[in-house]
């Protein structure tokens, strides 16, 4: 629990600047919020992993946050739906809700592809 709250500090403004520097380095920071080992969560993780391997090889970092274990983060990070993927870097921040089974939409959401 304590660790989780510490982790959440990364979204605080002063930390943002450091993150922004990282952003320039071109590394993608992705966070996947799940609630336990639900089928939707597992498939979301698998879908994300596959997409990243295809489009962002070596340029990404995925952090999985289990809200069952860290419920306070749901409030702090404004998470309502599960699973939610948050693209923090590069900016702008985007939230992608769902199990990411719709690849097209996911890529648009991640701004890896222009919306048709």
């Amino acid at each position: 629990m304590n660790k989780a709250i510490k982790k959440s500090n990364v979204l605080k403004p002063e930390v943002w600047e450091i993150e922004a520097a990282e952003a320039n380095s071109g590394k993608w920071d992705l966070r996947l919020y799940v609630a336990g080992q639900s089928p939707k969560s597992i498939s979301a993780f698998n879908n994300l992993k596959r997409l990243c391997e295809e489009h962002l090889e070596g340029k990404y970092k995925i952090e999985v946050i289990d809200l069952v274990k860290n419920p306070a983060l749901a409030r702090e990070h404004q998470i309502v739906a599960i699973p939610t993927l948050v693209k923090r870097i590069p900016v702008p921040l985007r939230k992608i809700i769902g199990d990411l089974s719709d690849t097209e939409k996911t890529l648009v959401g991640l701004q890896l592809r222009e919306a048709k």
């Binding site: 599960i82 985007r94 089974s101």
Partner: peptide, 12 residues
């Protein structure tokens, strides 16, 4: 800032 891609719930 939200995109929906498939099945989800409101567990959050």
């Amino acid at each position: 800032e939200v995109e929906e891609t498939g099945d989800f719930d409101l567990e959050g």
